[in-house]
Design a binder for these strands. Structure first.
Lengths: 117, 117
DNA sequence: TAAATTTATTCGCTAAAACGAATATCTTTA
DNA sequence: TAAAGATATTCGTTTTAGCGAATAAATTTA
């Protein structure tokens, strides 16, 4: 099989997909879909310890999925590319379809965005 | 924060996103983007041991991402929902943009699909 | 400069996930 | 029914990744 393709998919996984491999990180991304937030705000909103949030933000930062900018003592995080939310919305649609097929009604329809503030 | 939202995102991760948390599984999904394949065909094409392929297919099957149908001695796998490829294509776009920003040219443009047979 | 606030990092541990190798199971064919 | 072919599973091990707790680093304020 094509080695370039394999390489690109390895990059795709290493740089992007592995960033989505934890529910807390997905929560963070959805939180940032509408506007930027500081670490403390995220920790408070999500009710998750600050060091845990920081560690996950580092994962997202290392993959260039989020951007960090300091404002005074706070560091505000934002999404670098909104397409990551679009991708998650598609995957939500996949989930909804799968639950439908199982006869279990998905709690919210796949079309309605989960956040956007 | 909204508990229903948290629950849905946990489901999103458990049912779908965690399925993308391995490069071999992404390779398998792209392989299946164009047409169905048997386990042996996948193992041969991707040059990965058959038990490894089977184990990863089980992960994808358990999450309802792929469907399995037996034909004689072979079992053919196919995508249950093509939106998973659309989502991966979006994420490829995110990767390409990120590499561009780093001044490293992505090997293939984000618009051109990786497979489709 | 010291204290307070915010964020990042490190350490030790635990749990989850992947692998290779071996083998079991299922289906067809001889 | 036995052999062959295709797929799935199990076992033991290794790797990876997450957490809580503690603490370090950076910035502002007193």
């Amino acid at each position: 099989m094509n080695k370039d393709l394999r390489d690109e998919i390895n990059r795709l996984h290493a740089h992007v997909c592995s960033g989505l491999a934890d529910p807390i990180r997905i929560l963070i991304l959805y939180s940032l879909a509408g506007s930027k937030f500081s670490v403390t705000e995220l920790a408070k909103t999500l009710d998750i310890p600050q060091p845990t949030i920081s560690r996950h933000l580092k994962v997202l930062r290392d993959r260039d999925i989020v951007a960090a900018e300091r404002e005074g003592q706070s560091v505000f995080y934002s999404l670098r590319d909104h397409r990551i939310i679009e991708a998650l919305e598609l995957l939500r649609g996949v989930l909804a379809g799968s639950l439908e097929n199982q006869g279990i009604l998905a709690q919210s329809a796949a079309g309605s965005p989960i956040s956007e503030q």
